[in-house]
Amino acid sequence: MLKIFQAVVLFFTVVTAAAQGNPKPPVFTPLSAESKAELDEFRRLVNRMVSKRNPGQMLSRAPKDFRVLQTLAEDPSIKHADRNTWIALGVAYGDALIAFVPGLSRSEVHDEYGPGVVLRYKRTTLTIAAPVMFAKRVERGETFDVPFMANELKKYVQENAGKIQ
């Protein structure tokens, strides 16, 4: 879980080395076996939560999961959950985003924020740190609308993908 925790990339990070005066561009690599195992562990945690509330139901890594994740996020028993729980929900959110926004895939990144697992748009530097999106909002005491966030991210990617290398 350490790599996921190290994904201290902001909610939505568009990393362009030239724009930030950073001489080193981010380095993207495929997911390691360790990262894949960590993601699967988080997925199992979320699926246990879903199954506990609705026996027999599981997430499908599809946009219909946004509603299920919203229901979980609003559940009083989860409101004060630990950071791992919120990161697990963010991992499931990322899975659904991959199906919702064509061109997104998981990648490891090493950039000025350190190493992390992100969603990367095609072969650009446009990244989304889905695992920490919910955790950061909960830490700040914010409420959020999961389907709305997904629609806004999709719109942002569609409007800006051509402007980012």
Rank of each mutant, 00 (worst) to 15 (best):
M1Q: 06
K3W: 02
K3E: 15
K3R: 12
I4D: 12
V8Q: 12
V9T: 10
T13V: 10
T13R: 14
T16S: 07
T16C: 03
T16R: 11
A18F: 09
A18M: 06
A19P: 02
A19Y: 05
A19Q: 14
Q20L: 15
Q20V: 06
N22Q: 13
N22F: 00
P23D: 09
P25F: 04
F28D: 08
T29K: 10
P30L: 02
L31S: 06
L31I: 02
S32F: 07
S32R: 04
A33T: 08
A33W: 04
A33H: 09
E34P: 00
S35C: 08
S35Y: 05
S35W: 00
K36S: 13
A37R: 11
E38H: 06
E38Q: 14
D40G: 13
E41M: 04
E41G: 15
F42A: 14
F42E: 07
F42K: 15
F42T: 03
S51G: 13
S51D: 15
N54Q: 12
G56F: 03
Q57C: 05
M58G: 01
M58A: 11
L59Q: 02
A62Q: 13
A62F: 00
A62L: 02
A62M: 11
K64N: 08
F66C: 02
L72K: 03
E74C: 10
D75T: 14
P76L: 03
S77Y: 01
S77L: 14
K79H: 14
A81H: 01
D82F: 03
R83M: 10
R83W: 07
I87Y: 04
A88P: 14
G90F: 05
G94A: 05
G94I: 09
A96V: 01
A96W: 00
A96G: 03
I98Q: 13
V101Q: 00
V101S: 04
P102F: 05
L104S: 05
L104P: 05
S105D: 11
S105T: 15
S105A: 11
H110Y: 12
H110T: 11
D111N: 14
D111M: 06
E112A: 08
G114R: 10
G114I: 12
R120Q: 15
R123F: 11
T124S: 15
T125I: 01
L126F: 08
T127F: 02
T127L: 09
T127Y: 06
A130E: 11
A130L: 06
P131S: 03
V132Y: 04
V132L: 06
V132T: 13
M133F: 08
V138D: 00
V138M: 10
R140Q: 14
E142T: 04
E142W: 12
F144Y: 03
A150H: 00
A150T: 06
A150I: 06
A150C: 09
N151H: 12
N151L: 08
N151Q: 10
L153Y: 09
L153W: 06
K154W: 05
K154M: 09
K154S: 14
K155F: 02
Y156A: 10
V157H: 01
Q158E: 15
Q158W: 01
Q158H: 05
N160C: 08
G162C: 03
G162F: 01
K163I: 00
K163S: 11
I164G: 01
Q165Y: 01
